[in-house]
Every structure is written in structure tokens, then in C-alpha cells.
Design a protein around this nucleic acid. Sequence first.
DNA 1: TCTCTATTGATAATGATTGTCAAAAGCAAT
DNA 2: ATTGCTTTTGACAATCATTATCAATAGAGA
Lengths: 138, 138
Amino acid sequence: MKRNTWQREAVREALGQTEGFVSAQGLHSALHTSGSPIGLATVYRALGDLAGAGDADSLQSPEGESLYRACSTDAHHHHLICRNCGLTVEIEADAVETWAKTVAAKNGFTQAAHVVDVFGLCASCTQAATVHVVGPQQ
Amino acid sequence: MKRNTWQREAVREALGQTEGFVSAQGLHSALHTSGSPIGLATVYRALGDLAGAGDADSLQSPEGESLYRACSTDAHHHHLICRNCGLTVEIEADAVETWAKTVAAKNGFTQAAHVVDVFGLCASCTQAATVHVVGPQQ
DNA sequence: TCTCTATTGATAATGATTGTCAAAAGCAAT
DNA sequence: ATTGCTTTTGACAATCATTATCAATAGAGA
């Protein structure tokens, strides 16, 4: 049976108060800073449970870290993430949803899940980096 | 200056002969099995270079490993991957390309890159798994 | 061939994540 | 409130992929 501990509540709450995505490590140190003596392993476990229960989104950062975010809605959505400052914008992608389903079905695939995330430089970071030389295609 | 070594060729070739995606570790052991005494670090380096030069695709598996695959074409494309048997189908996604650019631009983002991959169960794995009972909650 | 320097590779280092297991705390019944 | 059974916790060790180190090796042009 699932037991109710303050640790799990703490993680759920900390996650809810976070803008954008956090790593387990990040959440743990945030909690520590707030005075919570919660253990690192516990944070990992709680986040895993949350994600498994569908109460949290998880995605892999380009560096291979697992990032988590509280699911605000039941609705499925994706993210536009600034690779410099971490700013995250939620984006709706009905078109992509349909496309993913269609493509999967057309190839005989079932139970299709998809990973759709856009990384870029947000407006302010772009401005700050104007000196940057842009490469050709891609 | 970039030098031409048999190691790099070996990696390029091994990658080219591989169906679907491989991890660096996987490619390294494949090479070893084939009798090549190439070092692991070198495989990592070569794969990184290939990916950087646009000669290889790379993506993160759900487990957080980096997977690589030889790029058959210059064209940018995405993948439909069977999460059971690893079967990979290349998919074109002009619609998605445009969508990604549009969404990024609409939010002031520049230099948009995107991660778009669809995971699912391929036809045969679906059939093989029909017996599967979906357990309620853990 | 010779020299200069990029590359290699064995291994150590790193860093995130998971496993371990005794101690602590939930929850239900008493 | 107390007892008893189990889940959960947490400090730490263990894993695992990846990266850094650095002396030795081997391209490539002179």
C-alpha cells in the first residue's frame, strides 16, 4: 500500500512551485535550501513515482539529465526551451499530435508515444548573442 | 587539421552497416567482436565528430543513453522506433519542420532545433503482445 | 625521411542514477 | 494510546555511461 509521507508531499509541492523543468538533483538542493532534510535518493524515488503516476512530465535534457515538471493539466503538451537561459514556453501541438498518430498508424505501429521538444535561443538571449556567427543550413 | 585514421573509418563503416540506432558502447563491442582493437574513448570521439559534422544522427534513448545512426541523406528527417524490437523507420516531417520553425519564431526564439521522435510498438510486436494484460495500478 | 602535431588508448575521474539495508515512521487493529 | 507489521527513508556504496588525462603513436606535408 502507498503511504503518505511528508517527504512525498514536499517533493510534489516543490515541483509544483517550480517554473519549467528541474533535475532531481536541482530539486533536492532546492529543498535543502528551504531547510528540508530530505534525502537525495528519496527525491529520485518520489519523482519517479510522480512521473509513473502521470502527475509529472519528464524529459531528457540534451546533456542526458532527466528533467521533471509538474503536469498542470491533463492535456498533453510540449515545450519550447531556451538552451541558454532555460526559459520554458508551453506549446500546443494538435497538428503534431495528429501527425504522430497518423505516421505511426501508417507504419503499423501502435501505442505511439512521441518526444517533441524544440530548443532554441529566446528573444533576449538572441539579442545578447548578436555577435554570434550563424552557421549555414540546419 | 583533421587527420585520416583507420579508426575513424572503422567507426564510420560500422555505423553504416548498422540497422537502426546503436550506442557508443554497443558499437565499440561490435567492433571488438569483429577483431578491431579500437579503444572505447576513440569510438566516443569519432561518434561525436560524426554527429557534429552532420554525418550521423543522434538521439537519447528513454534510458538516457546516447544513440547514433548513420545519416543516409543530407535531408533532415526523424524516426519511428519500435520500443520493443528496435525497428527503426525513417519518416519525413516537412509539416513538423515548418511547425517547429513557426512556433519558435512566434515566440521570439531563434536557432531553433527540435527533437521529434515517435516511439511505439511495430506491427509484429503488437501482434506478439496481444496477450498482454494491462495491470491496473501498481 | 623527418618533424610537427593531431590522434589514440588505457585508465582515472566525473556525475547522475540506482541498489542496499538497518533504522524510522505509517497505518490499522487492538 | 499502544502494538505490530510493512513500507519508506536515508546515508552510502555500487553502477554505468561518458569525459578528461597524458604519454606514446602515427598522419601529412616539407
